[in-house]
Nucleic acid binder design. Sequence first.
DNA 1: AGCCGATCGAACCGGCCGGTACCATCTGCG
DNA 2: CGCAGATGGTACCGGCCGGTTCGATCGGCT
Lengths: 199, 199
Amino acid sequence: MPVPKGSTIDPERTRAAILEAATSVLYERGLDGIGVAELCARIGVSKETLYRHFGTKDGLVEAMLQARSDRVTRWLAGVVATAGDDPRDQLSAVFDALQEWYDDPVFRGCAMLNAAAQHHVEAVRAITARHLDRYLELLTGIAERAGAADPGVLGRQLLMLVEGATVVAAHHGAAGAGEHARQAAHALLSAASGTAPHR
Amino acid sequence: MPVPKGSTIDPERTRAAILEAATSVLYERGLDGIGVAELCARIGVSKETLYRHFGTKDGLVEAMLQARSDRVTRWLAGVVATAGDDPRDQLSAVFDALQEWYDDPVFRGCAMLNAAAQHHVEAVRAITARHLDRYLELLTGIAERAGAADPGVLGRQLLMLVEGATVVAAHHGAAGAGEHARQAAHALLSAASGTAPHR
DNA sequence: AGCCGATCGAACCGGCCGGTACCATCTGCG
DNA sequence: CGCAGATGGTACCGGCCGGTTCGATCGGCT
């Protein structure tokens, strides 16, 4: 019994479909770069349905960002998990994955940072901050496993490299951004763990 | 004869005053976060005057961003110029200056990146790209003087650190961001020039 | 079949948007 | 002084904004 109460056309699926469709449109056009009317037309849903599910445009935005943060975090964690046990390989895997993202024609920078830059709603900024927290946790884990002297600091420096590479790729050309960031990350890791550089 | 034709209340000064006042308001509120009417009220100028000088809100935005890019570039170049001849000291000076910026209560991230993230006008993206070019030129210069094996690559990696530190400071807490980025930059420079770390 | 809830499509709302027009006022120059 | 240009203040424009409402339709469950 997947749907508890008597229902019909499966609102859950509708909600999920709206979220998925809205994610790409809002990423492409910007949160305030498209009105609700046009957004609904693109998604293929009526305004009433959208408002019934999310109450407000901001509500949709927040739900969309949260879902996107979840998805990205799972994606990166998976990349790390399938990269083997060597933390250096894990770090390489992260930047290789980022480079693939940068090369995607629809790449327009980090959606969370874009959202926080344009939207002054506190909830949006909170989602962005939590998103960076998740990145930091993942990178600090790599730093710990690599035996860094201060994994917290190294994790934060790696976070700066990740976000910096994304910014540079978005606004200054994607070519080689992930590669250069990966080399820099390895240099930092080597310096922090006192071992010879990898490769 | 500073003013060629017969004029009166000095339009040049008015234009400069509008630019300066608009810079802080648009930075604080976001380019699309404030309307022309309220913007004029805050600046203390009539709509007609604003439109006479800039033609369009986008025109004002572009002029403002260009002026801000010029100012920031001059500021950073000055910081480097007064830091002595050692490229490592110059690098430290850059990140120390950035940290002071991060600690400013009005700090809300890089204005160019924020603008490019929210505004889809091509001219804005071009100004942002040129701004990053200027950063890159400055950092590549430091990399060259430090004897880096590949100053272009090191310059780009330093650019990622600068932008990454700014992003992290804006959205994840400013405390220590410049410091951590500075240490990372020194580690990269040491690794790239094959010398012992500074300090 | 018959009901109920989900959905659609479109009309509608007050309000604000960017931008324009008009006129009174002020300032400096001759 | 008197003129010309710069400015302020305000009303106004069409259009789009986010959000609400209503009736018609549709789909699954009993």
